[in-house]
């Protein structure tokens, strides 16, 4: 594989060829190494029935300690019972075309759903990894009646990429209430270059520090949207999350995580003073 990379580095003018090479096995992680994945998730605040910000992140790698192949699809499964009814997140819709053309500024304030970041590995050089510091999530136009989350990744240096990709929140069954099915485009390392490998993503969906606006009696008022609610009952063992990742070339990896049941709320007894 090193020989492969060295030879590729010697012909930087043919980056486009690398996309093909990635499929045939020359790029990181595409050899015999098995892909690995880990997932974590949390609620903030972590209270039963409360509107919350869902934070989740994943790390991808290989058993050979080389970067995995480029990620092309991620399915994040959310626990059953999450309440999407009462949330006021995504009161406006961001159009993918406007997001692509103008970046985050092209979307209404009230379409923001969360923020995040990602770390990627470029398939050349000695650098260990690069951060795509700005990933933002927006409410997109619904598809087949399902909620759509638009992700905007803004990379400048050395990974130059302004990417828009979407995840569709699809109803699920059993322990999981919904799947966020996200197709991820290949992220070029340089214009027309080979795709990078995503090795780590951290993101939130929820009010967090989001501030929305609305007009009340002619005045612009700022407010914090209500988050998706944590189920009012915690299943035995906690709230399950799981993820399935699909890489360029067809290999996959799975991971799961559990958000522990929050401690019961302590009711303070008020003594009656006479």
């Amino acid at each position: 594989m090193n020989a492969c990379i060295r030879s590729v580095r010697s012909i930087r003018g043919v980056w486009a060829v690398l996309g093909t090479l990635a499929i045939c096995g020359c790029l990181p992680g595409a050899a015999a190494a098995a892909n690995t994945a880990s997932l974590h998730a949390s609620f903030s605040p972590d209270r039963l029935g409360a509107g919350t910000t869902i934070a989740f992140g994943f790390e991808l790698g290989t058993t050979e300690n080389v970067p995995p192949p480029p990620l092309v699809k991620a399915v994040i499964r959310m626990p059953a019972g999450m309440n999407y009814t009462t949330t006021t997140l995504g009161l406006a819709i961001c159009e993918p075309g406007a997001l692509q053309a103008k970046g985050a500024a092209g979307c209404p304030t009230n379409s923001r759903l969360g923020t995040g970041s990602a770390f990627v590995e470029v398939p050349f050089g000695k650098e260990s990894g690069h951060e795509l510091p700005e990933i933002q999530a927006f409410m997109g136009p619904p598809h087949n009646g399902n909620l759509v989350v638009l992700f905007y990744a803004n990379g400048q240096e050395p990974v130059f990429a302004q990417l828009v990709f979407s995840g569709e929140l699809v109803p699920s069954t059993g322990a999981f209430g919904a799947n966020l099915d996200t197709s991820i485009p290949l992220i070029p390392s340089v214009p027309n270059g080979p795709p990078v490998s995503i090795v780590k993503v951290e993101t939130t969906i929820g009010p967090g520090k989001l501030v929305y606006t609305k007009h009340v009696k002619g005045r612009l008022v700022h407010f914090h949207p209500l988050g998706i609610s944590v189920p009012s009952r915690c299943p035995k063992g906690g709230f399950p999350f799981s993820a399935e990742f699909q890489f360029l070339g067809g290999s996959t990896a799975q991971a799961s995580a559990t958000v522990p049941c929050p401690p019961p709320v302590k009711h303070v007894k008020h003594r009656r003073h006479r």
């Binding site: 999407y84 995504g90 009161l91 406006a92 819709i93 009230n110 379409s111 409410m139 136009p141 619904p142 009646g145 399902n146 909620l147």
Partner: peptide, 8 residues
């Protein structure tokens, strides 16, 4: 029936 969210 069916229910679908579309922004506001």
């Amino acid at each position: 029936g069916s229910y679908r969210v579309a922004g506001a």
